[in-house]
Design a protein around this nucleic acid. Structure first.
Length: 283
DNA sequence: CCCCAGGTTCTGG
DNA sequence: CCAGAACATGGG
């Protein structure tokens, strides 16, 4: 199947650290599992080519929704272009979009992300999927539901590489499995209320909560401040002073409002790939 | 043996 | 409210 896409950058979208279940497949392709459907993706200019192995395929509307392709990025582009500190990110990553992830997967994965690196998070994603998920192709699995994780012992999660995060994920999985409507309530609630509900889980603080709200619940006011964003923001907007994460979060929300989350994604990818030099902060 | 990785929690001031 | 340390694990 083939979808005409406008203002879309598949590579930047999948490699900007918002989702952990995709891997490169060939020169310009990617393989991943959306829900329980395995998909091969590759972009040829304005064409997004999608193939699902035995053609148990996804509807086009599902793909459009997943990659947020029905969003008008004009207001985001306007912000990026009009700020010289962000223009480079626009030039290089134009078409980067925020994925609408499964809420549970986003919640679980970003519990695993704390004090961790992307490569290892991807490895844990694979371990969890292979051991607790469902087989969707010969060697590929879907990310396990809360129920599946809730059914194992903490020691099992440690063996899969979760380290000290094992009890955090286990507790959260048990709660979600026992309270299926909780995540729906997060969806319904506005940003602040949703955030307090997400913060209630163990192992989730300000930063992870914002990631979960942004990637799993489409709360676009969310502005996760991690080490990369902290360095970049200090450098670009605070002359490398020791401004706190909280101050930066408030600054971003006031400056970019409902588009803060999108701006953050461009900034994060720019900082991590070295497009914008995030160096130069003196501790 | 050090530091770092999309931090959070706990502790003592 | 703020600064420091501990926390598993793997890589540089």
């Amino acid at each position: 199947m083939r979808i005409k896409v406008d203002n879309f950058n598949l590579e930047a979208t999948l490699e900007s650290g918002q989702v952990f279940g995709f891997r490169r497949n060939g020169e310009d392709g990617f393989f991943g599992v959306i829900g329980k459907t395995p998909v091969n993706l590759c972009q040829r200019g304005s064409a997004l080519v999608i193939s699902s192995p035995p053609d148990g395929g996804r509807e086009i509307s599902d793909i459009i929704r997943y990659f947020d392709l029905d969003r008008d990025l004009t207001p985001v582009y306007k912000i990026l272009q009009e700020d010289p500190r962000l223009a480079k990110c626009y030039d290089v990553f134009k078409g980067l979009r925020l994925i609408r992830q499964d809420p549970w997967e986003a919640l679980a994965c970003f519990i695993l992300s704390s004090n961790n690196n992307v490569k290892r998070i991807q490895g844990i994603w694979r371990n969890l999927s292979k051991n607790l998920g469902e087989r969707v192709t010969d060697g590929d699995f879907s990310f396990p539901q809360a129920r599946q994780i809730a059914g194992v012992h903490e020691r099992t999660l440690r063996e899969l590489g979760l380290g000290y995060r094992a009890p955090f994920l286990l507790h959260t999985a048990c709660f979600v499995a026992a309270n299926p409507s909780y995540l729906e309530a997060v969806h319904e609630a506005p940003y602040e209320g949703a955030k307090s509900r997400v913060l209630a889980f163990p192992g989730i603080g300000e930063k992870v909560a914002d990631c979960v709200l942004l990637y799993g619940f489409q709360k676009y006011e969310a502005f996760p401040v991690d080490v990369w964003i902290l360095r970049a923001m200090r450098k670009l907007y605070f002359r490398s002073r020791k401004v706190s994460e909280g101050k930066i979060h408030a600054f971003a929300q006031k400056r970019w409002g409902a588009h803060a989350g999108y701006v953050q994604q461009y900034l994060f990818h720019g900082a991590r790939t070295g497009i914008i030099s995030a160096q130069g902060e003196e501790k």
